[in-house]
């Protein structure tokens, strides 16, 4: 796992991780939508209990790559993934892997808040119910409460757990979706532009939440906002036209980018 990870000549400076434990690693990952080659030879390590941000201009493939990490692309018929993507050294595209179990370990939060048209309680209880995590009503209540507490939503909704989740504000809905993901106790949480549909105040709350969650989860966040990437992430990966251009510590990427494409993007010359 050394230099074979270099997908593109410009990523020479990408440091392999030696001192931190790698949670997810991709090698030569390719994604095709029918004829379209959407992701080209991406190699990348995601460090446990850190926040990794994927940045890049629209259509660069960062969301597509994110969706490879919990095989969400399986739901798209024409999509094909090749290469090697490992979660804890285990190939997630192996035949032996149960995709349902994988998605329980790698949770996801979407761009647009998508609470189920059920009550707040039922939204959180959905995951534990289908996985049979809780043995009784009391335990389920406990999971619901602790998930909402950790998502910073408990104080706002504790008196109306039976009202519909769709009745909350956009920011609350997104925190509900994060709470819903936490309730399954995943190891990794993937976030696909979780704040792009939210106002600045709600965004600030979510960013704060992401920072807190880092102690327990490995988080990957796709974002259009470079400020957001700089604020919440420890590592940043820059994608351009389906390729990973550069990946490294956030501070390095933003202060001393190795590649001129990265430089151009973060200084706002294109994107």
């Amino acid at each position: 796992m050394t230099d074979q990870h270099q997908p593109f000549e410009g990523t020479a400076g990408q440091p392999r991780i030696a001192d931190r434990s790698v949670k997810v690693s991709a090698t030569n990952a390719n994604v095709y939508y029918g004829e379209k080659h959407a992701i080209k030879d991406v190699g990348l390590d995601i460090v446990a209990q850190e926040v990794t941000a994927f940045i890049g201009p629209s259509g660069c493939g960062k969301s597509t790559f994110l969706r490879c990490l919990n095989r969400m692309n399986d739901t798209i018929d024409i999509c094909r993934v090749t290469g090697d993507i490992r979660l804890d050294e285990e190939d997630i595209y192996d035949r032996k892997i149960d995709v349902v179990e994988l998605r329980a370990r790698v949770g996801m939060v979407f761009q647009k808040p998508n609470p189920f048209p059920k009550s707040i309680y039922e939204n959180i209880a959905y995951g534990p119910r289908i996985h049979g995590t809780a043995t009784g009503k009391a335990e389920l209540d406990e999971i619901v409460q602790s998930s909402l507490v950790r998502a910073g939503l408990w104080e706002e909704v504790k008196d109306r757990l039976d009202s519909p989740g769709t009745g909350l504000s956009g920011g609350q809905q997104q925190r509900l979706c994060i709470a819903r993901a936490i309730a399954v106790s995943p190891e990794v949480i993937l976030m696909d532009e979780p704040c792009s549909a939210l106002d600045p105040i709600a965004t600030a709350k979510i960013e704060e939440l992401i920072d807190e969650l880092r102690t327990n989860f490995t988080i990957v966040i796709v974002t259009h906002s470079m400020q957001q990437a700089a604020r919440v992430s420890q590592r940043t990966a820059f994608f351009h036209l389906g390729r990973l251009i550069e990946c490294g510590d956030t501070e390095t990427i933003f202060t001393n980018p190795q590649h001129n494409l990265t430089q151009g993007y973060i200084t706002g010359r294109f994107g």
Binding site: N70, M72, T75, V100, E101, L102, R103, A104, R105, G107, M108, V109, F110, K112, N114, P115, F116, P117, K118, Y126, G127, I130, H131, C177, R180, A181, V184
Partner: peptide, 27 residues
Amino acid sequence: VPQAMREGSYGLGATKSETIRKVVFPA
């Protein structure tokens, strides 16, 4: 029923039939 509902359910590790029975059908 929006695809986002289905993906939300798949993202929590639900199977196709669980998703249909518990999310799509009630919606």
